[in-house]
Design a binder for these strands. Structure first.
Lengths: 149, 149
DNA sequence: TTATTAGTTGATAATCATTATCTATTCACT
DNA sequence: AGTGAATAGATAATGATTATCAACTAATAA
C-alpha cells in the first residue's frame, strides 16, 4: 500500500483523471474544490473548504462543495471521517482507510505513519466470522502544541 | 483491563451505584433505560431504546432517553459510538474504548475479543508527539448472517 | 450556426438526530 | 403537609447535510 507523500499537483491530476475517466466534467468550481483537497494536510470540513473558496469564487455555494465531495466519495478519491458532534472531515490525499490522531482541544487531525493492520484484521475476521472490508481508527488526545499549555 | 462478560444484573447495579454515588435520582424512567442498556448486546440507538420502552411506559419521551444517556456519559458509564449517517449507538456494558465490528448490511455491531493496543498506542505517541487518552476502532464488513446471502 | 440534450450550479427548502427550553410533576427533606 | 430542587415530557430550536428545482453551461447533432 502506497504511503509515501505524493505532491499536491500529482494528487490533483489523479483526481481529475479519475473524474474524467468516469465522464464527469471538470468545472471551475470542481477544480477549485479538488485543488484545496489535494493541497490540504489538515483534513478540512466542507464548511472550511467553502470559506477558502468564497473569496475567489463569490458565487460558490456550499451545496456545490457538498456535491463535489460526494462525487469524489463515489469515485473513491476521498476518505470521509464521520463525526456526529462536529462536521465531517475529508482526506483527499490518502483516500484509503488509515489511522488518525485527533486533538480534542484544537480539532487538528493528522496522519501518523501507517502501520500494518493486516494481522489484526485477519485475527478479527477469524474470531468474529465477519469479512472486513474497511476500518476506522482514531486516536484522541492532545497534539504537541496543545500539550504545552 | 476487565474484559470478561459481566451479568446484566451486575452491570445494572454498577450503573445505579454510580448514579447514586453522584446523587442522581433513580427514577422509574431512568431505571428502565439503564435496564435496557445493561441487557443489550447489540449496541442500541436512542430511538431503539425509546421504542422498547414506549409499550411499558406510555408517557416516556425521547427527550428522557437522551437525557439519561447523557447522564450516563457524564458519569462514564456508557460508551457512545458516534455516526453521522445514522444514529449514534451505545454500549452500556463496556463503557471503555474497545474495537467494534460493524455490519454494513444489517447494521449489527458486535464486540470482538479485546486485544492489547498499548504497544500500538505508545508507538503512535512517540511518532506523533500526541498524548493519547482514548481511541475508536471500527471494522466494517459483513457479519456471518449477511455473508450467507 | 443553431438546436437539442444532458450535466451542473446555486438558491432555497427539507430532513433528521439531537439539544434547548419551559412548564408541570415528583421527590427529598423539613 | 410544605418547600425547594430535580426530573419528565411536550415542543421548539439547532445545525450539518441532502433534496429540489429553475437557470445556466457545455457537448453534440442537425
Amino acid at each position: 500500500m502506497d504511503n509515501q507523500k505524493i505532491s499536491p499537483e500529482t494528487r490533483l491530476a489523479q483526481m481529475i483523471a479519475k473524474l474524467k475517466e468516469n465522464e464527469f466534467r471538470i468545472t471551475p468550481q470542481r477544480y477549485a474544490v479538488l485543488r484545496i483537497l489535494a493541497h490540504s494536510e489538515y483534513h478540512p470540513s466542507a464548511e472550511s473548504i467553502y470559506e477558502q473558496l468564497i473569496a475567489d469564487y463569490p458565487t460558490m455555494s456550499p451545496a456545490t462543495v457538498y456535491k463535489t465531495i460526494n462525487l469524489l466519495k463515489k469515485n473513491g478519491e476521498i476518505l470521509e471521517l464521520e463525526f456526529s458532534e462536529m462536521s465531517n472531515r475529508y482526506d483527499g490525499n490518502r483516500p484509503y482507510p488509515h489511522p488518525h490522531m485527533i486533538c480534542t482541544q484544537c480539532g487538528a487531525i493528522v496522519d501518523p505513519p501507517m502501520h500494518d493492520f493486516e494481522k489484526l484484521k485477519s485475527k478479527m475476521m477469524e474470531e468474529t466470522g465477519f469479512t472486513i472490508s474497511s476500518f476506522r481508527l482514531d486516536f484522541f488526545g492532545l497534539c504537541p502544541d496543545c500539550r504545552k499549555e
